[in-house]
């Protein structure tokens, strides 16, 4: 039952955007955030995400200067870090936690990895575009999606496929 709840797209690692501005909407948002916080604390399944936030902080800081890779890389901008943070927060509970990296163009990356043939890499740009590519056995998937506060369904589907076999 609990695991089924954790799989719910309504539950995420952080605040999902609310569309209401009324007192009631804010109250509901606060209550649901509190609920999520308790769930995170109660279930080890949610604890791994703290490692990802920590990794994100370190990578963003250490790759925040030009040429951080010795080959002329672009610095990771604060806005990129903010987008990646929101993306991690928006991951539904129960979704495996990714590892964090950075690319020479200043994008931050999140990787879901099972083995070299089952892997998804998502790049996050400062303007909130998500560029992804995946290998799932013999099939390949790639695409570009805007991040509008919720993790695109396509990406969630691929994550599940990466870990399904």
């Amino acid at each position: 039952m609990t695991l089924a709840m954790l799989e719910s797209p309504q539950l995420s690692y952080g605040a999902v955007p609310t569309r209401g501005a009324s007192t009631e909407a804010r109250y509901i948002e606060k209550q649901s955030e509190e609920g999520r916080r308790r769930l995170r604390e109660a279930h080890s399944i949610g604890l791994g995400v703290y490692r990802a936030f920590e990794e994100l902080f370190v990578v963003a800081r250490e790759c925040g200067t030009q040429n951080w890779d010795g080959y002329g890389a672009q610095a990771v901008q604060e806005e990129t870090s903010r987008q990646a943070h929101h993306f991690l927060e928006a991951l539904p509970l129960g979704i495996p936690v990714p590892t964090v990296g950075a690319e020479a163009d200043g994008h931050l990356t999140l990787e879901w990895y099972k083995n070299p043939a089952r892997v998804l890499s998502v790049s996050i740009s400062p303007n909130g575009m998500l560029y992804y590519a995946a290998l799932i056995g013999t099939s390949k998937r790639s695409g570009t999606e805007p991040f509008l506060g919720e993790v695109p369904e396509d990406i969630l589907h691929i994550i599940r496929r990466v870990f399904s076999a």
Binding site: E55, V59, E62, C63, W68, D69, G70, Y71, G72, A73, Q74, T99, V100, G101, A102, E103, A104, D105, T109, E111, Y113, N115, P116, S121, S123, A133
Partner: peptide, 23 residues
């Protein structure tokens, strides 16, 4: 050459990140 430890996975394989061309 790889200067970020995050670019190496726990199993010793390498992420695609350092192989993205730039600039």
């Amino acid at each position: 050459y790889i200067v970020r430890k995050e670019h190496v996975r726990r199993d010793g394989t390498v992420k695609p990140d350092p192989f993205i061309p730039f600039k």
